[in-house]
């Protein structure tokens, strides 16, 4: 068990190193730099080329790429994410709160969506092939066939403008307590939950149906144990195993992957911050956010693995 965690940890470090290098070079080869994108066409029109060159040297944008790469890696080893190019602010300060907000949104989504998805999946699995199952499966497919931006904009139109139950846009601050922020974001949470239930419900349903058809279920059935008992006590833990891996990856992708929802509702998360950093060519912020997202994937994966070990009697014994 400990060796499993250690091996996973070592491999994760390799992944993170590859990722950091990929992000560094990918953002470096792009045309343009932080100085150019901080100037409008009007401003560039008035700046002589030598002034631009001087500013570029002041900001350290003219250093050779290998020098910047080694100083970037060196910083990472010291847990120093660097400073923004134009304002010289510590990157960690810019990334920390949006990251907290995104993790909170992903966590809350999972917390609310997983039980619902599970209930739906169990109802559907118990009634496999019958009307209920077909209706649930159909609803799930429709649920993730609708683009997020359409769901979000429709929810705003209905529940904020026509029937003003909830705020249309989030006016809370980035560093407000999570309770304040999430209370201001019911429609954003609803948008991510709708997609999540559809996705998770579908995965869990398939897992359950597969397990219910397995030999050991058949044996339990023959020994007279009622179907609901088999479902709850035996099939569910077994079906949770593949479901858990998928759910963990899904939750990790929610951390940085709900850009559209963040933009539509002005939720102060890491995805919107990422888009801002890319367009402003604040390379260090982009790198920090990509790394943070990668760490999330690694941690969530690790958590799922440990969960599987806890759920699966075979691995627990060995």
């Amino acid at each position: 068990m400990i060796s499993l965690v250690l091996r996973r940890g070592a491999l994760s470090l390799v992944t993170l190193f590859l990722l950091a290098s990929f992000i560094f070079f990918a953002t470096e080869v792009l045309p343009g730099d932080a100085l150019d994108v901080s100037l409008s066409a009007d401003e560039i029109a008035m700046m002589p080329p030598e002034v631009l060159a001087r500013r570029r040297a002041e900001l350290g944008l003219d250093r050779p790429i290998l020098e910047r790469y080694t100083s970037f890696l060196g910083g990472l080893l010291r847990f120093d994410l660097g400073r923004t190019i134009i304002t010289r602010a510590p990157v960690a300060d810019i990334v920390a709160m949006p990251l907290r907000n995104s993790v909170a949104l992903a966590g809350l989504t999972l917390l609310l969506a997983l039980p619902v998805a599970l209930a739906i999946a169990m109802a559907a699995a118990q009634a496999k092939g019958r009307l209920l199952d077909n209706a649930v499966s159909g609803a799930a497919i429709i649920g993730y066939s609708i683009p997020e931006f359409v769901t979000g904009l429709l929810l705003i139109a209905v529940f904020a403008v026509w029937w003003p139950l909830f705020p249309a846009t989030i006016t809370a601050s980035t560093d407000d307590p999570l309770s304040v922020l999430l209370a201001a974001a019911p429609l954003a949470v609803a948008t991510t939950i709708i997609g999540s239930i559809a996705y998770l419900g579908r995965i869990l349903r398939v897992g359950l149906i597969e397990v219910m058809a397995a030999d050991f279920v058949e044996r339990l059935h023959l020994s007279g144990i009622p179907r609901w008992r088999i479902l709850w006590l035996h099939a569910l833990p077994a079906a949770m195993i593949p479901g858990l891996s998928a759910a963990a990856l899904y939750a990790a992708s929610l951390v940085s992957g709900v850009v559209v929802v963040e933009l539509v509702f002005a939720y102060p998360g890491i995805g919107a911050e990422l888009v801002r950093a890319v367009t402003r060519r604040e390379v260090h912020v982009v790198q920090a956010i990509a790394l943070a997202a990668a760490v999330c994937v690694v941690l969530f994966n690790l958590a799922a693995d440990l969960g599987i070990v806890a759920l699966d009697p075979r691995t627990r014994r060995s």
Binding site: L18, L19, F22, V29, L30, L249, L274, A290
Partner: peptide
């Protein structure tokens, strides 16, 4: 498999933005 894991960790939007800008 590390590359696959890495891709999962790179936000989709960032990946496309890098491609399209380049």
């Amino acid at each position: 498999m590390r590359l696959v894991e890495m891709k999962l960790a790179v936000p989709t939007i960032l990946f496309v933005a890098i491609f399209v800008t380049g």
